[in-house]
Design a protein around this nucleic acid. Sequence first.
DNA 1: CTGAAAGCGCTTACAG
DNA 2: CTGAAAGCGCTTACAG
Lengths: 350, 350
Amino acid sequence: MPRPRSRKSRSNRAATLADVGREAGVSAMAASAVLNGARTSSRISEETRKRILIAAHGLNYRPNAAARALANRRMQTIGVAAVIDDGELNHYFLEVFNGILASASRHEQNTTVFTLHNWGTDAARLPGLCDGRIDGLILVGPTFDPKSMRLPTHTPFVSLHANTSLPGVVNIECDEEQGAYEMVRLLLAQGHRRIMHVTGPIGMTGPERRIRGYKRALAGARVPADPDLIVPANYNATSARDALPQAIFCANDSAAFGCMETLAELGLRVPDDVSVAGFDDTLVARIAMPQLTSVHQPLRAMGIRAVEVLLACIERPGGAAKPIVFPVDLVPRASVAAPPVVDRIVPVLR
Amino acid sequence: MPRPRSRKSRSNRAATLADVGREAGVSAMAASAVLNGARTSSRISEETRKRILIAAHGLNYRPNAAARALANRRMQTIGVAAVIDDGELNHYFLEVFNGILASASRHEQNTTVFTLHNWGTDAARLPGLCDGRIDGLILVGPTFDPKSMRLPTHTPFVSLHANTSLPGVVNIECDEEQGAYEMVRLLLAQGHRRIMHVTGPIGMTGPERRIRGYKRALAGARVPADPDLIVPANYNATSARDALPQAIFCANDSAAFGCMETLAELGLRVPDDVSVAGFDDTLVARIAMPQLTSVHQPLRAMGIRAVEVLLACIERPGGAAKPIVFPVDLVPRASVAAPPVVDRIVPVLR
DNA sequence: CTGAAAGCGCTTACAG
DNA sequence: CTGAAAGCGCTTACAG
């Protein structure tokens, strides 16, 4: 018989069920039944129950999470996978994450964060994470090609703002097209006609939806859509060189904030000279000066919902993966106003 | 003999070492030696090694994390405990967390977040977290009384900006007094003499250090310290009613941002009418308009260091708990300028 | 009401 | 070089 291993001395280890049982003069199972509320039909007499509780308290007993997970096939932990730019904080993620944390802790689940550098290359790491350390995984803003990889079937997934529909995965998103539509309608109602839209990467679902909403609003007001006014995210907008727009509608708040900074450098005031609008209504929108008119996505609530859906999937696997779409809210703030009356001399935008 | 349990059908379960061994015609231990690089002295012949690798690949084998953790007494996971106001994002925490995440993933550790509502009451939950689910715990800004609770000895702790010294716990902090000193020196050099300091909760280490630095700088310039100019964090400053200061030095960036907002409501311009300075140099400082002069604490680097120290503690427990103090950097930005020359009529500050 | 047994999936001595 | 055995700490049938 091998000696018991002792990397650390036994005395410095946490007490086990066996220790509690020995102390109370009962078996480890009896202790398990009392302390960890096993669903066994058996009941323990009030007297031994008390002895066990006292012994457990005296030994400062805590059930070992790894052992429990191994026996139960349940880690009580959900994973969150997201791309977080090393060094730069991503407010979109942070607000979602805040909701996930709150909801997970309410459901007594731990939350483990997996950071990816890039969905395209790092998505291949996802199956490796489904090795029993998490019971389910929330993908925040995944953009990988589902055909390039088979997702594991034994761990349920939920996605937020997935760029493509992943088979068997519930996706949670907002009605982004409607948000873009309402935003542009607001700008139109203020009298703007030349509305620039700084969008995200071409070909992605989110940007495409915003562009669709943008175009729909313009069409509704019979304003022709000038393709030069739609510029991709990086926004080193050569197309804007000749004509400064009256209003800039950006695909997210960070882009809008970047526009505001550049406008300030050019000596232009927001909203007096140019109106600027964002999307997401993250902290950046509330903290900018002037505050940013934006489309509110309930990111925190979406994070909360993601946890709830994921837990439901964990309980009963194989349900229908019907996507969940949240409504959006237009939040008018100071960065949008009526366009200037007089045509001014147009400076070079970058 | 009990039947194998089958909550899910066996075929839908992840492959185990036994499965791989069977497939390759060897024992599970041989498979373990090849696949999980067990440190056993034995070596496997090149030929069976290949068979095992092929079998593992075919079965899509992943070592089960819970089983590994149980056998190894090592979860490859570090915990992070912090108070995060439900609903409100805390940039101090987020920047630290960013560093922790980056460093943990570099060391192939998972990161689990535990959110507390309040250190005083929730610190009692900490021992319960040391149940094998984490190998070590980073406490971000703990403020509980160490005498009210014995920390578990079998799980190492590291703290960031701990309010009191916790026995056996390495604390990581910044030279905050020096930061406050340099900040007030800057304000003095600009010609300010009536410098308000909006500080944090009285009696906490951080605020006390800032106050000490503030007073040291004033003393160095032979400017008498007016106790009415030091106001606690909530800053519904009745003491400021009669005399508006030339400059306000806040104990963190969020407080400074709040001051700037109130000043704007009062029609006062920063820095033309009042200079405002913050502490921490979080995102808020860079995003405010005008940008906030602040004291830079390398929060992300501190998070990274926290992980490294914690891992060292996990490897060899019981080292000296020598605190780590980072230097600070003064970051001058637009929110601080020379005081206005003319005494103006003083409006009521709240 | 209570306990002996087997199992979760991995490791680490140890024996061949 | 390879395998049978025992153990990590818990749980869930099952038998008394």
